[in-house]
């Protein structure tokens, strides 16, 4: 269970150590991609806790969500509509829901232990 956390830390270190920064005009895409990735990650944790975790769904959802969010932002830029806000909204709501579900599950587990 500690391996994913270790992966996160290694990723962050790698990102900071490479001294690699993307141009400002693309930072929108990256932020939306990060949001999608976080959403999928928390969705995966929730599914894991609910024992309905499917690896194929998780991995495919991760990449598919990132691509979808980035292409939505791209489309928004070219249409002149801030479509990435839609992605931010959708992923934000789902993020909160997932975290709420995780919290509840953890609380019920914790109270069941007592």
């Amino acid at each position: 269970m500690w391996l994913p956390v270790l992966g996160l830390i290694i990723g962050v270190l790698l990102g900071f150590l490479t001294d690699f920064s993307i141009p400002v005009e693309y930072s929108d895409y990256l932020s939306i991609a990060i949001l999608a990735a976080l959403d999928t990650l928390f969705g995966g944790i929730r599914a894991h806790l609910q024992n309905i975790y499917d690896e194929k769904v998780f991995v495919s959802g991760f990449f598919f969500n990132i691509l979808l969010a980035a292409s939505l932002a791209f489309l928004g830029v070219h249409l002149g509509v801030d479509l990435y806000l839609a992605a931010v909204f959708a992923f934000g709501v789902r993020l909160f829901q997932n975290i709420a579900v995780i919290r509840r599950i953890l609380i019920t587990k914790w109270s069941a232990k007592e």
Binding site: L30, I34, F58, V59
Partner: peptide, 24 residues
């Protein structure tokens, strides 16, 4: 296998986060 794929994905997430932090 499950935790390996999860680790890989958290690694990607961490990398993206760090880069976004640096860029912003």
């Amino acid at each position: 296998k499950k935790s390996i794929s999860l680790t890989f994905i958290t690694l990607i997430v961490g990398f993206m986060l760090a880069i976004q932090f640096q860029s912003v």
